[in-house]
Amino acid sequence: MSNPQTAAVSTGKKPFMEWLKSRKGQKWIVIFVFMLVPLVLLLLFTYLPFAEMVRFSFYNIKYTETPGPKNYVGLRNYIEVFKRSECFKSLAVSLYYMGGAIIQLALALFFATMMVFKVKGSSIFKGCMFFPYLICGIAVGFIFKFFYARGFVLDSILQMFGMDPESIPMWLQDQSINNISLAATSVWRYTGQNMVLFLGAMMSVDADLYEAASLDGANRWHQFRYIILPSIKSIVVLNLILSISGSLSAFEPPYVITNGTMGTGTYFVIMNRLAHENQKVGLACAMAIVLLAIIILCTVGQKLFFKYAFDDGTSDESKAAVRKRKRAEKAARKGGSLA
């Protein structure tokens, strides 16, 4: 590294080279080199597209257009998002997925609790339930297209149990239930994975604790309430928060199984269609921004709610309780100083 020639050529560079060799210089080299690739990628594929998205949402653009004059349309795209019935109807569709997500969390919690207590063959049950998570969305789509098709799997099973074939609804065509059928596929796919997550958190509790508790006469409910639940509170809260943005951005089930027809189009399915089939890029961008705003509002709202109610799950004492205690302490101190 110590090259006398470079030092001789320009004395101005010498302190810089020295600096590079110093600890501080080394530190900055490492910082620069190690962060370069991820930061460039982050800017290029997240923030640049995000900025472009904001810009595009004020224009009327197509993909194929060569860069040149674009039609500036002001807020018209945003107005159209709120005016188009399909956009907002699709938000109502996400309510089904939200319902599904809550059922999925409840089921996962239930089965994880079952597994914490000794179960014979638990690894088999766990494997069976986790397995759907590993199947790709397209394959899940095909499996359930087949499963729900008229006269195929689900219908045959129901008939086997003596259900009248006349009274079986069209699972994917009947608009009153097709969104439930689709949301159910995501429950099927993710329940096992959620269960494994919860189980992992529960297992981190010392096993002796359960034994001690049951020796002390705690029943299963008490064990769940006082040992299991506190250990997984933060991960359950996290998953609840994720489930909102997850259901608002539900995409694969309707896209693959019904292609968004018959009232099953979620927000992203509609957006995808507008962008890539109708070439209304500006409108699609406006939709994306609106959704992002909704997601951020929901996330912040939920975070604040849980922080207020449960103190983010990190402490057993809620914020309200902390405030009450502080007030009491303050009052006590005041009383003390007055006396």
């Binding site: 290029l44 594929f45 923030y47 597209p49 595009f56 993909y63 951005s249 995808n272 699609a284 994306a288």
Partner: peptide
């Protein structure tokens, strides 16, 4: 700042930005 940049990025659903990522890729 950088940590927060990554945190905020995780909030943006991937499919949403693909409309413009496509343009960049192009």
């Amino acid at each position: 700042v950088i940590q927060n940049l990554f945190l905020f990025a995780s909030l943006i659903p991937g499919i949403a930005t693909q409309v413009t990522v496509y343009k960049i890729m192009y």
